[in-house]
């Protein structure tokens, strides 16, 4: 191993950090999406609250929560740093640049999509994480667990929150459409046989996960849950 400290400050190293944290957050979304889908179990939220109770009390999950926050912070700070550098790399802009001729708009708009997601993340954390960790959940369910389900139902009565969540999930879908295959390319995994599979899996992941998430506030607001 040599100069590996410097490795992370090089252009390729900075990309690697984005890729690794991105893939980590992609894995996290699967767990988050699965647990939240428990609200669709038709038992007045008992299963969902059970899941939330497990997440809140298991020591391994609590330890991973710290890693998760670090993952988010590193991904966000690094992207801000890269964006500033990349802007400086072209101080005089083109008078006319036909970006659509050679790349996807969402590939070029990862910063904008990410900013929407950051705003969402702050609102989302204050809606649920702050409530369950700090200010406290007022009621308990039949099993004696904190009734996070009731908090969720109340939160999604606000149409503006619902709109923000749905908009954020559309942004997430596009963010993932680029980010999922891009992370593999950055890791150096570009292969005639595997890359088409990665792209296909990435496409469906980017559609399905945000769609399931978006259905949650919509279903609650529409009174289906």
């Amino acid at each position: 191993m040599s100069n590996s400290g410097k490795a992370f400050s090089s252009s390729i190293g900075k990309k690697l950090v984005m890729g690794i944290t991105g893939l980590f957050l992609i894995l996290y979304l699967i767990i988050h999406c699965f647990l939240n889908s428990l609200i669709f179990v038709n038992d007045g939220g008992l299963t969902f609250n059970e899941g939330a109770h497990f997440m809140a009390t298991n020591w391994l999950i609590r330890a991973m929560e710290v890693v998760l926050f670090l993952g988010f912070i590193v991904h966000i700070v690094q992207s801000a740093r890269l964006t500033i550098e990349n802007r400086a790399a072209r101080p005089v802009k083109y008078a006319y640049n036909d970006g659509n001729a050679n790349s996807k708009w969402y590939s070029r708009s990862m910063g904008l999509l990410g900013t929407i997601l950051l705003i969402f993340l702050i609102v989302h954390l204050s809606n649920f994480w702050v409530v369950s960790r700090f200010t406290g959940i007022p009621t308990t369910d039949a099993n004696g667990h904190d009734d996070l389900y009731a908090v969720m139902k109340l939160t999604f009565q606000n149409v503006w929150i619902v709109i923000l969540y749905v908009l954020a999930m559309v942004s997430l879908a596009y963010h993932l459409l680029h980010g999922f295959p891009s992370a593999f390319q950055t890791m150096g995994w570009n292969h005639k046989k595997y890359t088409p599979i990665i792209k296909k899996v990435g496409f469906w992941y980017s559609i399905i996960i945000p769609l399931i998430f978006a259905l949650m506030p919509i279903a609650v607001y529409a009174g289906l849950i």
Partner: peptide, 11 residues
């Protein structure tokens, strides 16, 4: 040399 960082847009 001050080139930017790749974001894999493929342009």
């Amino acid at each position: 040399e001050g080139f930017g960082n790749c974001t894999n847009t493929g342009a």
